[in-house]
């Protein structure tokens, strides 16, 4: 029966028909598909972004929890008082493996007092922010392409396109996004895109007194951050989610959420 040429011909015909149908599906004009340029036309006035791919390194051994970064970020980006583009958490872990975490006002006003009960064996600060993932869950779910990734690896939100559905806020596993109550659109850290494209450092890196926060360009052979990322044993937040963050943590602890 399998060798029956008639059957085989019919089968092939069916396959061809299915294939044709498949081609049709591909031919259905996808709005925006034509504009999805992967190879940028060099005649266009392209910014210098093809020369950059940014990364961020946070050395947890150095953070003293001063909150400079949180304050600078708030001022630089005029962040709403109740929300944070970057924040600092304090972890205190006792000898009985009780983990006490706090981030009062996002670490904006620094930290005071001891919240842990028992003998604290480890205590450290963890600055957090948008991880600018390469495999981003947030731009994936943005229905209108308001949130996107620039070729330099920075995730931005176009506040003039954003419809404020908050789907991206739900999709971000790091709590880095929020809806700005003033604009009703999504907001998040941009790695100070307006600064780094002018050759400056992000505000939080600029003001960090201990060099905890480092920012650099992976495509720049002379940038120290390349060496740091390649040589230091670093971790990322929630690696199991395969978001491929580009914020690397040195001196990571298993208690960090």
């Amino acid at each position: 029966m399998h060798n029956d040429p008639k059957n085989r011909r019919e089968f092939l015909k069916a396959c061809a028909a299915a294939g044709a149908a498949g081609v049709w599906v591909l031919l259905i004009p996808r709005p925006g598909a034509a504009q999805r340029v992967h190879h940028i036309d060099p005649s266009l006035q392209v910014p210098d972004w093809m020369d950059h791919y940014y990364a961020y390194v946070i050395d947890l051994n150095k953070c003293i929890g001063c909150g400079n970064c949180v304050r600078a970020c708030k001022r630089e980006n005029k962040v709403h008082e109740k929300f944070f583009r970057t924040w600092v958490e304090r972890y205190q872990i006792t000898d009985e493996d009780h983990v006490y975490v706090e981030s009062p006002n996002g670490g904006h006003d620094g930290f005071s007092g001891n919240v842990a009960h028992g003998k604290v064996t480890r205590s450290f600060f963890v600055p957090k922010m948008c991880n600018h993932c390469r495999n981003t869950p947030c731009t994936q779910v943005c229905p209108v392409h308001a949130s996107y990734q620039t070729p330099e690896g920075v995730i931005l939100v176009d506040k003039k396109r954003c419809i404020g559905c908050a789907y991206c806020v739900q999709a971000c596993p790091y709590g880095s996004r929020f809806i700005d109550p003033r604009t009703h659109t999504a907001d998040k850290c941009t790695w100070c895109y307006h600064r780094i494209t002018k050759g400056l450092l992000p505000a939080c890196v600029t003001v960090c007194p201990t060099n905890t926060r480092r920012f650099g360009d992976l495509k720049d052979e002379d940038d120290q951050i390349r060496e740091l990322i390649h040589n230091a044993r670093s971790s990322v937040l929630k690696p199991d989610l395969n978001t491929e963050p580009f914020c690397f943590y040195i001196g990571f602890d298993r208690a960090i959420r």
């Binding site: 109740k82 929300f83 944070f84 924040w87 958490e89 872990i93 009985e96 493996d97 009780h98 983990v99 006490y100 975490v101 706090e102 981030s103 006002n105 996002g106 919240v115 957090k128 790091y174 709590g175 880095s176 996004r177 929020f178 809806i179 298993r254 208690a255 959420r257």
Partner: peptide
Amino acid sequence: MIYTEFSFPNDMHI
């Protein structure tokens, strides 16, 4: 590990 309750500072809204 036993955690005391902690929410990310942006995670205060539904």
